[in-house]
Every structure is written in structure tokens, then in C-alpha cells.
Write a protein that binds this DNA or RNA. Structure first.
Lengths: 237, 237
DNA sequence: CTGATATGACTTGTATGGTAGCCATACTAG
DNA sequence: CTAGTATGGCTACCATACAAGTCATATCAG
């Protein structure tokens, strides 16, 4: 079933790149934003009809989504949106923490250009405005931008690519809880702490600040599992 | 061009899974083992003819390879084996170190089952025999198994999936230098140090041991760049 | 001889037809 | 009524046909 919200994603997505890439972006967003329920069956034909394209690019987008751990392709049976489980969230969080803490350390050790620092400060400022205004969607976008700019600014493009990949699992959970159980102001402050430490090239503080930031979800996760026990696969049995 | 060595890979690869998965495994190995030279042009048609399959699964394997950073697909132009650059190796190494050090710490903190410890010890023993016998190919297989068993044994499946992905870049370099500039015995000893620390649940030692192990390639890389300057993209200009 | 242009042989991207396998349902034998 | 089986509709997978872009080469005008 194609909801209006998904159709809107398809329209809004600039025709950048091939149909396959466009489909991947749209379907990925749709899954993260819970437009497709966990466990829901998709199908090449259904999606291709809905977007008026052929089955082949849909198929390729499905394969890509399955590699990102967002759907599961069962040969000769169907393609299903994977369920959210506490385990999958914890595993993704573990990998993300490992990488981003290392990035933070690296950035503090080697230093980052003033250009990047300015960009980070600017993002933090805009995040603060979103926090005060309660603009959660916009905050998420700025949050992702912050981590991207930090990783790329430290010269770790591959690290960002991997982070982006595992982040999808976490974003899906975060999208469940809007407003988040963690106040946005607290997250913004953590961002500021990270940038401060990096600017001072205080390696230990940079490590610590990112470590604390990455463990924030561990605090809120148990509450979410309880509150959305119907969504989490491994909660109620 | 299809060398006999590649055809052998195709034959040997058990018919596990779909044609696409089989093609991916074979082409991945072929690239890592330098059966396809960096920069070499592949083509969907060429490969599909060589393996007597249609273009479609080849195309899907190409897409997968491009996501692993082993080939680059240029629309309407061609598909090329990506070159080896010092930068790409360093970036992959950075990510791998971050993840595997975190895994080692986690394993020491939480402990691993005796079953896993036995398996690791067994692998180390077999690695030692390979080291003495100079069986480099077999050692590489056992080395990969070691890191896989450790990651999975610590309950970090996603971490291993990511490690496996970035490892391809490093394996390609390592395959250049057989015998490696680092004595195999030294690597085996490092494996033993890691397992010892984990068994004692000595977190700091487990971190340190894995850290040292992961930085080994940093020592040998400069020599390799110099020795194989014609292979490395960013070496001679 | 030089330079612009058409052409043709490539490439990947997309569309569509056909195949094999899974599964629920209906049906049939006991 | 029950257990086994046939069947029809679905799926993803693979093969093939077509479309569209790129680039080297040949051709032709100046």
C-alpha cells in the first residue's frame, strides 16, 4: 500500500541519479519513518506499480536495503521489513560508538580546520534553535549533519559511510519517540562539549564527550522497549 | 579476460545461494587476490559470457562490489576495479581498529564461553603450524576465522559484518606481500595475547593487545607503498 | 592539414517475459 | 472427520530485449 506520505517522499526526492538510487533513498526513509510497519511484506511488483517503474530497479533497491539490514529478502517467498529488536539496536549502537569515538579522538589528535569548526558551531547554534522551538524533524537533520561534518572534517569518509549504514537502525527507534525521552537541549550541549574538546585538542575529553553522547540511547532504550513493546520483537516473550 | 585461476574459483565455489551471491563471492576473491588488476575495466557482458550466466546477476554483483568499494560503476561508461591507495587502506584500517578494539574490550568485560575460547585456541595452534610451514594462504583463512569467531563469540554479529566489509581493502594489500613483512609467528603471538587477556578478563590488556595487533599493518605499509609504488595510486605523484 | 561532425561500437540502465519454488486453499481418498 | 495431495496464485530469480548515454574513430568541410 502506498500512503500519501510515501508518495510525497517520491515526489520530493530530486531526480538525482538512477531510478534504483532514488528508490533506495525513498524506501529507506519510508522504513525509518515507520511508513512501512516492521514485518510488513513488500513486493517488487507492488512497489514498481506504485511508482510507475519496472521491477528491476525495485529489485536492486530491495537488495541494497537488505544489505543495510532494513528488509529481508526471502527467495521465492517475499520481501519483508525487518522488525525492530533491542538486540539489533544494541549491536548497531555498539558499532557506531566504536567508530565515532575513534573519530572524535582522531579529530582531537590531529586537529580540524577552522572552516570545519565554524561549520560545527553553526550547526550547534541551529540545533539549539530547533530544540527551543521543538522542531524535532529539523533537529534530526541537523544532528545527522553534525556527525557527518565531524567525520568528513576529520578525514574519515569511510568511517562516515559505515556510520551512516548502521545509523538507520538507530534512527528508526529514535523516530518512534518524538519527542525523545532525552531533552534536545542536552544533546546539543553534548555536541558542544565534543567540539570544545576537539578545538582544545584535549584527546581524553574528546573521547569522553563522544562516549557519553553515544551512550545516551542506552538510557532511553529500556523505556522505549517498555512503551513500544508491541513494536519490539524481543520484548514480549 | 578470464584467467584459469578465476575459472577455478568459480568451479570451487559451492553452489551456495543464488547466482548473484556466487558471483559476488568469486569476483570479490578475484579482486582481492589481484586476479583483476587495479584499474582494470570489467563489463557486465564480458563476465556474463565468461561464466555462462545472464547479465542481470552480474550487474547485481557489480553493484554489491561497488558498495564494498572494490569496483566503481560509471554509468554508461564502464565498471572498473578501484585502485589501491594508501589513503583507502588507512581509512579501512582506522574503521577496523575502532571496531575490533571495541569487540576485544567487550569480550573481556563480559567474558566469552569456554566453547569459544577453545575454538580460538585451536585456531591459534593451527595458525602456528601454518607459520612454521610457511603456508601463507591457509594462514590468511585461519586469521580471518580467528577474528570472526572472536566477534561472533562476543555477540557482535553486526560488528563482524562491518569488519568483513572494510577488511577487503586491507586483504588486497596483504595479498601483495606474501610473505608478509611481518613474521607470521609474531601475528600468532598477538592472537594468543588477545585471547589470554580476554580469558583473564583483563580489559585493559585486551584493549592493548588488539590495538597493537591492528596497528601492525601501519608498520609494514610504508615499505609496501615503496616496494609496490606502481600499484598504489597515490605513491608516485 | 585541421577541426567539426556524424557514425557505430561499446557501456550501463530499464523494461518485460519466463522459470522455479513456496504456501494456502480446496479437494479427494481413506 | 482426517490426512494426504493437487492446484492456483503468489514470490523472487534469471534471461533477454530495448533504451540511452559515452567515446573513439572515420568522414567531410574549410
Amino acid at each position: 500500500m502506498l500512503t500519501p506520505a510515501i508518495a510525497e517522499l517520491w515526489e520530493q526526492d530530486g531526480t538525482g541519479g538512477s531510478v534504483r538510487q532514488r528508490l533506495y533513498r525513498v524506501l529507506r526513509l519510508a522504513i525509518i519513518r515507520m511508513q512501512f510497519a516492521p514485518g510488513q511484506a513488500l513486493s517488487e511488483k507492488e512497489i514498481s506499480d506504485a511508482f510507475a517503474v519496472s521491477r528491476q530497479p525495485v529489485r536492486e533497491a530491495f537488495i541494497r536495503l537488505s544489505e543495510a539490514g532494513l528488509v529481508e529478502v526471502k527467495p521465492q517467498r517475499g520481501t519483508y521489513v525487518v522488525g525492530i529488536s533491542q538486540k539489533s539496536v544494541l549491536e548497531a549502537r555498539f558499532v557506531r560508538e566504536a567508530i565515532e569515538v575513534a573519530v572524535s579522538i582522531s579529530a582531537a589528535e590531529q586537529g580540524v580546520s577552522p572552516r570545519v569548526l565554524d561549520e560545527l558551531r553553526d550547526l550547534i547554534e541551529r540545533q539549539l534553535r530547533c530544540a527551543h522551538g521543538g522542531q524535532y524533524d529539523q533537529f534530526f537533520i541537523l544532528d545527522e549533519a553534525f556527525h557527518r561534518v565531524l567525520s568528513l572534517g576529520a578525514g574519515h569518509e569511510t568511517a562516515w559511510r559505515v556510520t551512516e549504514e548502521v545509523k538507520a537502525q538507530l534512527d528508526r527507534v529514535r523516530y518512534l519517540s518524538v519527542p525523545d525521552t532525552t531533552p534536545l537541549e542536552k544533546l546539543v550541549q553534548q555536541h558542544a562539549d565534543i567540539v570544545d574538546a576537539i578545538e582544545r585538542q584535549d584527546v581524553e575529553q574528546a573521547r569522553q564527550a563522544m562516549y557519553v553522547h553515544q551512550r545516551e540511547i542506552l538510557i532511553s532504550l529500556p523505556q522505549m522497549v517498555q512503551r513500544f513493546s508491541s513494536i519490539f520483537e524481543d520484548a514480549d516473550h
